[in-house]
Amino acid sequence: MTRPISVQLYTVRQALADGRDAVLRRIAESGYRAVEPFDPTTDPKGFRQVVDDLGLSVSSTHASALLRMEPAEVFDAAATLGTDLVIVPAGIAQEEFTTRDGLARAADLLNGLAEQAAGHGMRIGYHNHWWELEPRVDGRHALEALADLLAPEVFLQIDTYWAAVGGADVPALLGRLGERVLTLHVKDGPVVKGEPHTAVGQGIMPVPAILAAAPGAWRVVELDECAGDVFAALADSHAYLTSLESS
Rank of each mutant, 00 (worst) to 15 (best):
V7H: 06
R20W: 05
A232S: 13
A107M: 07
A106E: 05
V86S: 11
D224P: 06
L9E: 08
K45M: 12
G175E: 13
W218P: 00
V137C: 05
A213N: 01
M1D: 06
A22H: 12
V186R: 00
A172M: 11
L110M: 05
L149Q: 13
A151Y: 04
A78S: 14
L110T: 01
A239G: 06
T42P: 07
S246H: 14
E29Q: 14
V23T: 08
E96F: 03
A209K: 03
G175A: 11
P196L: 12
G201R: 05
E73R: 15
G119T: 06
V200K: 00
H197M: 15
E222Y: 03
V137M: 03
H127A: 04
L110Y: 00
T42R: 15
P206W: 03
V207I: 15
H120G: 08
A164M: 09
D39N: 15
W130E: 12
G228I: 04
Y126W: 05
S246K: 15
T83V: 12
I204G: 07
L103T: 02
D148T: 11
H185V: 01
L149P: 00
E70W: 10
A17T: 08
H62P: 04
L234G: 07
D39C: 12
P4W: 05
D188F: 01
A145M: 07
S57R: 13
A77S: 15
H141E: 03
G166Q: 05
L150Q: 03
D159F: 02
A217Q: 03
S246P: 05
Y161W: 04
D229E: 10
A147N: 01
R33G: 12
P206D: 13
A93P: 01
G91K: 04
A114I: 08
R100L: 12
G46K: 11
A34I: 11
R136L: 09
T11N: 10
M1F: 08
S59T: 14
